[in-house]
Design a protein around this nucleic acid. Structure first.
Lengths: 177, 177
DNA sequence: GCAATAAGTCAATAATACTGACCTAAATAC
DNA sequence: GTATTTAGGTCAGTATTATTGACTTATTGC
């Protein structure tokens, strides 16, 4: 399945991915920690910033978490005046979320650390590296396009990202003695 | 600081990174969930597999977590017979960790899903993409080599990955209502 | 002998996210 | 025009992960 020559390289890639992601999230995490906020707050700020007038439901779908898990952090951000929540003009049930001026500023600051990190890495890796990186990461995010044969015996259902599906085939965690 | 032309691309990169990592960890997570294990168990299995006879202290350092956070998952893996713990011949204080046969099999299964995902993505992105990807990710993991001027006002200390440093300048989390 | 080191442990706490059970209000179906 | 569905919000209970802090034990190195 996997060429033995490639195996070492792919193992190195796994490790590199892990450490890179840790560094990638570290910058925003440190800024947020100073305000007592966490990674969920960051994700909310990011996606609301990207798609102003996002509905709560859409936000839940991109984040792939439950309503209850979103609730507390979102309410905090609204109470802190970083996120604005207004009713939709057409459909009175849906709430449209957008960033306040201060929200935009915080989001920009968080995102700037990540953009700087990536820009530095692309510059260091040379021209063309950004395009190649993007193409690889897009494919990874899409499940590398095809699951292919010989995949691990996992139901298509449990491959979905919903919290319920994740829970469905989980063994009860064994607590150590 | 960041070219406006680049900004959209870098924002896209942030998003791509987030979704790619979610997919990347999803495969092993689903397999582990069936046994009631989590991501820490995976990391332990991975690093012990990579460096047999790793000491507990070294493991703590790569994982950047506390002894107490490692303790329960590691003990479970030992009790389940996936990880073997033996005393060092020279220094009686240190324990040398390695995978059992079953541990090797599970680790291989977990890692295989990630290698397949990455191999597929590299193949999809064309030749040379793997090298470029590696170079970029190595730079990201190293903090993009230079922090540079105009960096966000973060102490060098809090940039370190230790749990204590992370905690040190954190505001108390505000609970909503 | 004694300080430092490696490992293991118990207790308390915090943050995150889950399930389940509700509620309100508005839109849509019949 | 009631009935159902949808969007959003909330409370309660629980599980997991990881933290700080305070120890204990055994061993090593002077």
């Amino acid at each position: 399945m996997v060429d033995l020559n490639e195996e070492a390289g792919l193992r190195a890639a796994i490790e590199t991915f892990y450490f890179a992601y840790r560094e990638f999230t570290g910058g925003p995490d440190r800024i947020l920690a100073q305000r007592g906020l966490g990674r969920v707050h960051h994700r909310i700020l990011y996606f609301v910033g990207q798609q102003p007038d996002l509905s709560v439901k859409s936000l839940l779908q991109v984040l792939a978490i439950t309503k209850q898990a979103l609730h507390a952090p979102l309410r905090q951000l609204i109470e802190m005046g970083l996120v604005l929540s207004a009713g939709d003009s057409a459909d009175g049930r849906v709430r449209r979320l957008r960033l306040s001026g201060e929200g935009v500023r915080l989001e920009a600051r968080l995102t700037a650390t990540q953009m700087k990190l990536l820009a530095g890495a692309f510059a260091h890796a040379g021209s063309g590296s950004a395009a190649a990186w993007h193409k690889v990461m897009k494919a990874v995010g899409a499940g590398a396009i095809s699951a292919g044969p010989g995949d691990d015996a996992l139901s298509a259902e449990s491959r979905s990202a919903s919290p319920a599906a994740r829970r469905r085939d989980r063994a009860p965690a064994r607590r150590a003695g």
